[in-house]
Design a protein around this nucleic acid. Sequence first.
DNA 1: AACAAGTTCAACCGCATAACA
DNA 2: GTGTTATGCGGTTGAACTTGT
Length: 231
Amino acid sequence: MRKPCCDKEGTNKGAWSKQEDQKLIDYIRTHGEGCWRSLPKAAGLHRCGKSCRLRWINYLRPDIKRGNFAQDEEDLIIKLHALLGNRWSLIAGRLPGRTDNEVKNYWNSHIKRKLIKMGIDPNNHKLNHIPLRPQPQHVSPPPTSKNTMDAYKQQKVIAPSGENNGISDSASSLEEEDGKSAALLPNLNLDLTIAIPSPRSNKFTEEMAHNTESTVTGEVLKNEPTLLLFT
DNA sequence: AACAAGTTCAACCGCATAACA
DNA sequence: GTGTTATGCGGTTGAACTTGT
């Protein structure tokens, strides 16, 4: 039997030192990413592979964009979250230079609070105070305001994602509700074009294709899941 | 200046699943 | 087909930092 990934004894934990960072950077520059299990030993690090991977992906990678999120990034996160739920890696994948951890943290510390303040449930993007009569479906024009927050404010119509944070009940659940529920209707002007990506994301893509008003193209970009958002 | 409360964010943990034997 | 390991993901934690009193 092979040893488990994280052998608890003899491995460092907690914050990384500059020396550790440098060792990791040097090693990956020379050997590239991959084989995280054997990397710590080869790089002379007393860390588990998991920890090295996380440090590299979330902090040391050269293409990481640090600093505040721009307004358009924030809008995109909201839109994607409405559609995808807490699938941070998928959301981050649409924000160049941003990591899933960063997006998740930003959501929890900034956006979530903002939405709550506005009376919007961040879990399902619905208003907490629901009008007595539901709006008819598919009648609202796309938001004309410059960002999603404005759209929320002006139209008070929130995205479709269901209680479970997932995507599985986005469009279908609305059909099920059939106007009986007071749930508001999607109006984020999400026009999706999805290309079948790498095998790993096929399940996701199928779900998306099934649950959203989307166009599935036959184009495949190797190892690059493609989800185009037009706002 | 000192402390408390609130916020941010890097890092850890556990689970799911892909990959492999 | 089954069992085991490696990897990736999302939830959570806690130290560091900021703000208010």
